[in-house]
Simulated scan of single mutants.
Amino acid sequence: MWPRRNLQDLLGIEHPIIQAPMSGITTPELVSAVCNAGALGSLGCGLLPSELVREQVAAIRTATDRPFNLNFFAHPRPSVDNKAAAEARQRVQRYYDELGLGTAPEATEPFPIFDSSRLGLVLELRPRVVSFHFGLPGADALNALKRAGCLILSSATTVAEARWLEAAGVDAIIAQGAEAGGHRGTFTDDAGAGTVGTMVLVPRVVDAVRVPVIAAGGIFDGRGIEAAFKLGASGVQIGTAFLGCPESNVPPPYREALRAATDLSTHVTRMYTGRPARVLRNRFSSEMAAGDALVLDFPLQASLTMPLGRSADGDIRPDFLPMWAGQGASAGNNLPAGEFVRRLVNEAQEKHS
């Protein structure tokens, strides 16, 4: 059926499709539906407190007995520059004034670091797969995860990053092209990191490493899966196409923006969190584009921008909300997740037959 089965055999899944983690958007319902359809569902844990991770994993395990993936950020602890922080607050203050939010807050760390506490959480939960964005935690943490039976995935945006990940001991590499939505997985200072497209990146990574390579970025149908296999990949990771699924935690204004998207609707900005991320253009990301280099270290910048996108009572402000999306956003999809996986499989296998 599939040209290669090494990824399925490694992960214990039926189809070589991974639903991207997309922290804050994935839900236990989405993850379990993908798993039950034979692919690998992923829960984005980068923004979640540990107790909520426990609750959501319990819900996933109630709904499926198949392997799933827990994803974490592996970013270093940011350094706070008081002068830069004051300037960053000043840049966003006009929006706080406009929205009646008072004074922009002091910059803080809104996302958890993958520290010993988070490691202990994963060792307690023991998912089949653990994936990381922005590199990897230290060798001791990786060894502990491997001893617990967890398989390790991480994203690379250059060949050099892929080689480093393989040398560090990952079991498979996600080759993330520049078309991908959300945060780039870049973790080096290479000026070209994250700017290489999927069609170029995937075969180069395949030639450079021995572990299975998973193509990511701009894949939203069976044609993309077929192309990834022809480039040498052993599977694909798909994110944006799952945003429209009813199981995803995407608020109505975000869904409306996705439905209205064209092939020119996305761009890359650092203004939301401090790291480059592909989003649907909105007022905030467009107006702040000129100051894109003047941001705080990830994730400090997010502590200044998160209050703009949602009111205290949860109302969405689409002019300010980061709406993560890849260049395939205009393709659209609103099928239930399990049905969407089955459609992807049918489309891809028609290409193989």
Rank of each mutant, 00 (worst) to 15 (best):
E226Q: 11
H352T: 03
G177Q: 03
G222F: 04
V236A: 06
M271D: 09
R270Q: 14
Q349D: 04
D207E: 15
Q56M: 13
L101C: 06
C150Y: 02
S265V: 06
G232F: 05
M271V: 15
S311F: 00
Q327Y: 03
D140M: 07
D315M: 10
L304C: 11
V279E: 14
V295P: 01
V213T: 06
L142W: 08
L48K: 13
A63K: 14
R91Q: 11
E166A: 12
L136T: 06
A141C: 12
R255W: 02
R275N: 11
T269D: 01
G24H: 12
L47D: 07
A20W: 02
T26P: 02
N346V: 03
G24Q: 12
S286V: 15
G332L: 07
H15Q: 01
T305M: 00
P28A: 01
I13N: 05
T27D: 12
R91K: 10
P246K: 02
D221H: 00
A261M: 01
A348S: 05
T27A: 13
A63F: 05
F320S: 06
V341H: 08
S79N: 13
E347D: 11
V92M: 13
L231W: 04
P21S: 08
A85M: 09
P112A: 08
W164S: 15
A261N: 01
S79D: 14
V345W: 01
R89Y: 04
V202I: 09
D115W: 07
S79Q: 14
M22R: 03
E350N: 15
L7P: 02
T273L: 10
V236P: 00
A141R: 09
L52Q: 15
A84E: 14
V122A: 05
P318E: 05
